[in-house]
Design a protein around this nucleic acid. Sequence first.
DNA 1: CTGTATCCACCGGGATACTG
DNA 2: CAGTATCCCGGTGGATACAG
Lengths: 140, 140
Amino acid sequence: MATLKQPSQVLTFVSPTGEASTPEIDGIVLDVIGRVADKWTMLVLEVLAQHGVQRFTRIGQLVGNISQRMLTKTLRQMEQDGFVTRTVYPEVPPRVEYQLTELGESLCAAFCSVWTWAETHQVELKALREARDRYTTTTL
Amino acid sequence: MATLKQPSQVLTFVSPTGEASTPEIDGIVLDVIGRVADKWTMLVLEVLAQHGVQRFTRIGQLVGNISQRMLTKTLRQMEQDGFVTRTVYPEVPPRVEYQLTELGESLCAAFCSVWTWAETHQVELKALREARDRYTTTTL
DNA sequence: CTGTATCCACCGGGATACTG
DNA sequence: CAGTATCCCGGTGGATACAG
């Protein structure tokens, strides 16, 4: 983001020289977060971390309900970002194996705390959601 | 090494019959991840964590390019999820303040490692991307 | 100031069909 | 097996206008 594009009337107020109160979040970091904060990416990351090198179809099975299209796109993106390696064996039928790179593993480790947080607070979160749902129900 | 978490009950292999018994990652956790892995949510979370209680417009400024619509939606969602509290002061002009709850702060802390990871590897990531972009010079 | 409501363009993502 | 190519629908999110 942060692309050139006259912010017509957005809340932004990027001062010319920066400074002032510009606690803007670093663009690169933000961009990285944007890529990584993808549902399928996180799931594939998880799968490869737990099961090691796997083939295309296998990953799809392990992830769960994911279409070929999304699996392909996700894996390609992850490959581009250097999170996984893609190895094609010139056989017939073809065999393609995916494996986490060290970068991918380190990312996975970083996400571990979030995953743990989700598990730790799932009861609490579920309760909150149900409480909210009770309000939202009758109002329709 | 960097395994995300122990095999626990999260992922299961496909049963011998070919039926995908429980390949899904825990629904609640996945759902939570889905909500939390939102760009704007993460940014607002970050902003509130760093700047403490803030008003609507101010949050918008601190976040950067975010439309009112998205800011409102994000804040509402976060309020529903119990990440922030919303305090309306019956004044004119109106003043509304948002503040992280303890839950929100704990989530933010969990995300800290991801944020740190992004910062730590940003050079590496940038290099990878640029290398890729050079290949993508396949004109139009 | 703090929103809500609307219109609308974009694209994420499922379903399906075809290829090497 | 491991994709690629289309169609297509619904959600995301920006722009704009209006309200309390």
